[in-house]
Design a protein around this nucleic acid. Sequence first.
DNA 1: CTGTTAGCGCATTCAC
DNA 2: GTGAATGCGCTAACAG
Lengths: 366, 366
Amino acid sequence: MRPTVHDIAAAAGVSLATVDRVLNRRPGVRIVTREKVEQAIERIGYVRDVAAANLAKGRVYPLIFILPSGDNSFMRGLEEEIRAAILRSPVERTEISIVTVPAFDAGALVAALDEAAAVSPAGVAVVAVDSPDVVAAVDRLRVGHIPVVTLVSDLTGSARDHFAGIDNIAAGRTAASLMGRFLGHRPGPVAVLAGSMLVRDHRDRLEGFLAVMEEMFPDHRLLPVIEGQDDPARVARLIGETLAASPEIAGIYSLGAGNRGLIAALKKRGKGPPICVIAHELTPHTRAALEEGQIDAVLNQDAGHEVRSAIRVLKAKADGMAVVGAQERIRIDIFLKDNLPFEQGSETNLPFEQGSRNEPEQGRKD
Amino acid sequence: MRPTVHDIAAAAGVSLATVDRVLNRRPGVRIVTREKVEQAIERIGYVRDVAAANLAKGRVYPLIFILPSGDNSFMRGLEEEIRAAILRSPVERTEISIVTVPAFDAGALVAALDEAAAVSPAGVAVVAVDSPDVVAAVDRLRVGHIPVVTLVSDLTGSARDHFAGIDNIAAGRTAASLMGRFLGHRPGPVAVLAGSMLVRDHRDRLEGFLAVMEEMFPDHRLLPVIEGQDDPARVARLIGETLAASPEIAGIYSLGAGNRGLIAALKKRGKGPPICVIAHELTPHTRAALEEGQIDAVLNQDAGHEVRSAIRVLKAKADGMAVVGAQERIRIDIFLKDNLPFEQGSETNLPFEQGSRNEPEQGRKD
DNA sequence: CTGTTAGCGCATTCAC
DNA sequence: GTGAATGCGCTAACAG
C-alpha cells in the first residue's frame, strides 16, 4: 500500500495536523519541524491522494471561459464543447461559466478579464486578443494567483500559465508545404486570406506560410494579404474582387474564419482552372466544401481537446500539480476528404451498456 | 450540493446499507424496497461519486497489456508509453503489467490471453492478431466479465469492448490521396510495402489505399504488394530488388513497419528520379527520413493517446461507467517535415512550478 | 506552535 | 431483510 499521511506523521514523530500544514504550505510550523516532516515525506516517497483531498475539501473549481461572440462557426463549436464540459461538471467538480465578448475588441476583453478577477475563480481560460492592455489584465490575474490559460490564440509576453492551442507557425508552414506540393508545376499566384492581424494565431500562420512559400516555392507569386475580419459577407466580396482581378490565380490559403464567404465566392466563380484551396477549422461549411471539392485540405484544431486540456491544466495549476505534457499538446489535424472523422455528435456511451459485437465506432465518409 | 447516499436514503425512507445494496446490485433487498430506492435515485438525480467510492473500496485496477515483442520501433514506443503510465499508477490506482509475445503469432497470443484470464484482472488491452482462435480467447475473457480493449489493430467480430486505434481504412485512403496529389502528372508505378496480412490494420490500410488509387488515380499502375514481415533486413532486400526491377517507380506506400530497411534501400539507391514515399508511424527513423527528404509524409497514431485511452476505457468499463466518446477517438496524424512535433521527452511539468514568461511549449523544427 | 477530533461520500462488516 | 457503526486518506475546526 502506498504511504499515507499517517505514515509520514509516524515517521516524523508529529501529528496529522502538522503534516497537513507542511503539505499545504500553511503557516504555524517551526522551521525545524517542517524540515523533519519534509524529509520524512521524501524518504518514504509519499504522494498525495488528490481524490481523497478533494473529497475532504469538498473542493469545486469555479472556472471562467472567455471567448468571442458572433457567428464564427469555430468559436460556436468551441462554446459547444464548453457546454459539454459543463454537463460533466458534477463529476469533474468544476463550475464553469462562459463569458462572450465582441471579437477583436481588446477593451471589451480587458473588462471581461477584470470582472473575472473580481469573483476570484480557480482559473480563467481566454481566447486572447494580442495587445498590451490585455497582457496587463492577464498579469493582474496572475498576480492575484489565479491561473490563466490562453485558448486558441496566445498572448505575447504575458504571464499566462499555459497555451491550449496549436503551434500556428507550424500550421502556416504546413499549409504552404501542402499548397506547394498540390500545385506542383501549375503556375499562377497564390492569395492569402486572413481575419485580422490583431490576433496572434493569424499572425503566426501568416509568418509560417510566407516563410515556406518563399523558401521552397519561390515561383509562386503571393498576392497582398486580404483581411476579411472573419466576416463571411466581407470575405465573399473581397475574394470575389480578387478572383475577378486575377483570374489566373492558382491557390488560396484561408488562415482565418469566415470561410462561408470564401466558399460562396468560389461557387459563384463557377468553371475555370482549378484553384487549390487550403483553409482552417473543420466546421459544417468547410466539411461540406471538402467533400464537394471546393476545398482541398483543412487544417484543424480539436476544440474539444482544447477545452478538456484547458480544464485539466487549470485544475492542476490551481492545485500546484503536474500535468502530462504530451496529453496537453494540441495537434494540427490535417483533413482531406478521405480522412474526415465520423459525423460528430455527443458520442458518449451509455453507462452500464454492454459491448455489442464490433459496432463501427470510427466511421469514414465514403 | 449534489445529492449523496444520505439524501437518497432519506428520500426513500431506508438506511444507507440498503441504498448501497441496490446501488451495487447486491442481493438481500425486497423487490418493493428496491423499487422505492430506485425511484428516489431517479427523482433526486443522484450520481455516484466515483472518487469517494474508490477511496472507500481501496480499489485498484489490475490491468494487463499484451503486445508484440521484437525491435519494431513503434511497438517499443508503445511499450514506453505503457511504462510512463505505470509511473502514474499510484495516482490513477492502476496496477499495470506488460506481456510481450512474438509478432504475428496467434498461438502465443491465445496463450497470453488465457494466462491473463487466469489472474482475473480488471481489464486487458491487446494488440490483436486477427484470427478465429484469438477471437475465441478474447470472448472467453468477456464471458468472464473482463473488459477487453484492442489496441492498434482490431479483432474482426470479437466481443471486445472497444478499439483504441485509428480508422485504418481511412488511413489507407488518405495515403492514396496524398500520393496521387504529390505525384501530380509524374508517371510511373507505385509500390506497396506491407508487413503481414495476418493483422487487420495492415489489411485495412491496403484496402483503403487500393480503393482510392483505383478510383481517383487510375493512371498509376500498382505493383504487387510486398510483404516485409515488419523486418528491416527483409524489407531492405525486397525493396532493393523492387527498385532494381522497376527503376521507373514513382511512389512507395509503406503501410507496415520495418521502415529502417526501406530508408536504407532508398539511401543505397542514390540518385534517380524522385520517389514519393509515404510511411506509417513517427519513429526516430521515419522522423529523420522526413527531415532529410527520403520520406514525404508520415501517417501516425499517437501511441501515448492510445495507451491513456485504453486505460480510461478499461477503468470505465470495469465500473460500468460512461466514457467521453470524442476523447477516445484516435486521430490519424499527418506529418510533413513542417509540422513535426517538438522532440519528445517526458515533458511532464514539475509540480509546484511557477509559470515563467511564455516559454515555447510547442517548438517546431528548424 | 502543535495535537485531537470530526467528517467528506461511499462500502462493508456485523448485529438486529 | 434491514440498519448502525467503522474506516478509506485527507482537511479543517477547535483545543491545548
